[in-house]
Amino acid sequence: MGQQHAVSSIPKEEDDSSVLVGRTEDFKKSKRIRATVNDREVAIFYHEGQYHALDLRCYHAGGPLHLGEIEDINGQSCIVCPWHQYKIALATGEGLYQGIDPHAHSPAPKWFSKGVKQRIHKVTVKNGGVYVTLSDTSICYDSDYYASEKYKKTVSPVMKT
């Protein structure tokens, strides 16, 4: 008779670059998790069947994005920073704003992109585990400042959320 081995339902780390941040069932309950991935604070969202990971702190003033609400803006799912209501596309990290084109025939408010401001990260789901792989840091984004050691040293314990 052969030995039977129990199959573990606990996901394991995949490799050095991806970090296990939770189980799929954790996200289905909470819809968001705050995690540290290789010394970088990250907010991971589960929204409309998709996972999104961004730097935790908003590119504008370091607001805690994991506490923000998700809204549909111009056909994109966006996190709204709870501090100053900056809107960030979950899929791309673009900062969005509403403005009026003064040269338009009938100037009505429209949504525009400021470009990519918030660093996003790769999310992989495997065997019930949700993994985050940090994006390439050779390209700089505005949110990088709030992930830096310099910023972390200036933040008082009261500001941390």
Rank of each mutant, 00 (worst) to 15 (best):
Q98F: 01
T154K: 09
Q4R: 04
Q4C: 00
G115I: 02
F112K: 08
A6E: 10
G68E: 10
D39F: 11
L56R: 13
N38K: 15
T92P: 05
G128M: 12
A53Y: 09
E14C: 01
R57D: 01
E25W: 11
E94T: 02
S9Q: 09
I88C: 04
S18Y: 11
Q50W: 02
E25Q: 13
V130L: 11
K122S: 13
H105I: 05
K31C: 06
E69F: 03
I44Y: 10
E69P: 00
V123F: 10
S9D: 12
G49P: 06
I73Y: 04
E13F: 02
G49L: 03
S17P: 00
P107W: 08
K126L: 13
L54A: 05
E13I: 06
K28L: 15
K160L: 07
A91S: 15
P64R: 03
D72R: 07
T161R: 02
V80T: 13
D72Q: 10
H66A: 13
K87I: 12
P64A: 12
L67K: 13
S9T: 08
G2K: 05
V80R: 13
S77V: 00
L65D: 07
P82K: 02
H84F: 06
S77I: 00
R57K: 12
S9C: 01
A61M: 11
D39T: 14
V125D: 10
Q4T: 09
M1E: 08
F27P: 10
Q4N: 06
M159N: 05
S77R: 12
I10V: 14
I10A: 12
T133A: 12
I139N: 08
S8P: 02
E48P: 01
I73V: 15
I120R: 15
Y131P: 10
K110L: 06
P107K: 08
Y97T: 03
A43N: 04
D55A: 08
E149T: 09
I33M: 15
R23C: 15
K12E: 14
N127Y: 03
T137I: 04
L134R: 09
N38P: 01
E41Q: 14
K29W: 02
P82I: 02
W111G: 06
G93M: 04
K114I: 00
V21Q: 09
Y151S: 02
Y151I: 00
C58V: 04
A6G: 01
D55T: 09
K160F: 01
M159V: 04
F112G: 01
I120N: 13
S17N: 11
Q3I: 01
A104D: 15
T24N: 08
G95A: 11
C78F: 03
E48A: 15
K126A: 14
D142Y: 07
V123S: 13
C81I: 05
Q76S: 11
D136P: 08
V80H: 02
T92M: 05
K31T: 15
V19D: 00
S17L: 06
I44W: 06
K152S: 03
V132C: 12
K153F: 00
Y131Q: 08
V19W: 05
D144F: 11
P64C: 03
Q85T: 10
